[in-house]
Simulated scan of single mutants.
Amino acid sequence: MVLSVVLAAFVLILPVELPDKTLFATLVLATRFPPLPVFVGVGLAFGLQVAIAVTAGSLLSLLPEAVVSAVVAVLFLTGAVLLWRESRKGGDEDEATAQAREQTSFVRAAAISFGVLFAAEWGDLSQLATAGLAARYEEPLSVFVGAWAALLVISGLAAFLGRKLADRLPVTLLHRVAAGLFLVFAVVAVVETVRTLTG
């Protein structure tokens, strides 16, 4: 495992997920169920999604280097554009109205949380970023650990701090910071593509 790759994955994924729909879905789940089963279910869903994204990115790394860096550039550029567009919409999110906590077993609450987040995370920006990092660094375990750690931090904050967190997040700023990070990674990938083609 390469610590610098773990850190790169963590630093890139964390700001992407903070203003994401999965954060708000976790917040809503935390208003309906106790925090621990929500955290367990969401954490497992994120772990499976990260494993799928790392596998897809690792398969990309089997292609010629110029093709891989070009695909990575497109993935990150797409992510930057999507995040920037989200930041222009502002922080208005449709939040579900708070419901009374249900008397639900731990396993059922965790299973519901897993299902909601697993479905919500498909094609998400964090999946694009994770696949791009796995293709770029060819260190699937390091990317997995960094990305999953970032997602666990986010899901833990959402599950255990609940609605207090949503009220204090400058969502627009977080979208813009994440868009900037995606753009930097896209530029680095473009430079690597050009260097590979001309070198």
Rank of each mutant, 00 (worst) to 15 (best):
Leu75Ile: 14
Leu125Cys: 08
Ala9Phe: 07
Ala53Phe: 06
Ala129Met: 13
Pro64Thr: 10
Leu141Asn: 12
Val28Ala: 12
Gly43Val: 01
Gly90Pro: 01
Ala100Leu: 15
Leu152Gln: 03
Ala149Thr: 13
Arg163Ile: 02
Glu95Lys: 06
Val107Trp: 14
Ala120Asn: 06
Thr193Gln: 08
Val71His: 02
Arg136Lys: 15
Val71Ala: 10
Gly132Cys: 06
Leu128Phe: 14
Glu17Val: 15
Leu141Tyr: 11
Arg168Ala: 00
Gly79Gln: 01
Arg32Ile: 09
Pro15Ser: 12
Glu17Asn: 13
Val6Gln: 05
Ile154Ala: 05
Asp167Gln: 04
Gly57Phe: 00
Gly132Met: 08
Leu169Cys: 00
Ala110His: 01
Leu183Asp: 09
Ala73Pro: 05
Leu77Ile: 15
Ala96Cys: 06
Leu59Gly: 06
Tyr137Gln: 13
Asp94Gln: 14
Arg85Met: 11
Ile112Trp: 09
Phe24Ser: 01
Leu157Cys: 07
Ala134Glu: 10
Ala45His: 00
Leu18Lys: 05
Ser87Tyr: 08
Val72Trp: 01
Val72Ser: 03
Val187Trp: 04
Leu12Val: 12
Gly156Phe: 04
Leu173Pro: 00
Thr196Pro: 02
Leu183Glu: 03
Ile112Pro: 09
Ser126Asn: 09
Ala120Tyr: 07
Thr97Ser: 14
Ser69Asp: 10
Arg108Val: 15
Ser4Asn: 13
Glu139Ile: 11
Thr130Trp: 01
Gly156Glu: 00
Trp148Cys: 04
Gly156His: 00
Val5Lys: 05
Gly91Asp: 06
Ala189Ser: 15
Ala70Asn: 04
Ala111Phe: 06
Trp148Ile: 05
Ser58Asn: 14
Glu192Met: 14
Thr104Glu: 11
Leu133His: 10
Trp84Pro: 10
Gly47Gln: 04
Leu174Gly: 03
Phe144Gln: 02
Ala53Leu: 02
Leu165Thr: 00
Phe160Pro: 03
Arg168Glu: 01
Ala120Phe: 05
Val50Ser: 09
Val81Asp: 09
Val11Arg: 05
Thr78Val: 15
Leu183Phe: 14
Lys164Met: 08
Ala109Thr: 02
Glu139Asp: 15
Ala149Trp: 01
Ala109Arg: 06
Ala179Met: 01
Thr78Trp: 15
Gln103Tyr: 14
Val16Tyr: 03
Glu86Pro: 04
Gln127Val: 06
Arg195Pro: 03
Ala186Thr: 03
Gly43Met: 07
Ala166Thr: 04
Val177Gly: 00
Thr55Gly: 13
Ile112Met: 13
Leu62Gln: 15
Ala98Glu: 14
Ser113His: 04
Val40Phe: 04
Arg85Val: 08
Gln127Asp: 11
Val28Trp: 02
Ala134Thr: 07
Ile13Asn: 02
Val16Cys: 10
Leu63His: 10
Leu75His: 10
Phe185Val: 06
Leu82Ile: 11
Ala159Arg: 03
Ala9Trp: 06
Thr97Tyr: 14
Leu63Thr: 09
Ser58Thr: 14
Ala119Glu: 09
Leu36Ser: 11
Ile52Glu: 13
Leu75Cys: 06
Leu12Asp: 00
Glu93Gly: 15
Leu44Tyr: 04
Trp84Cys: 06
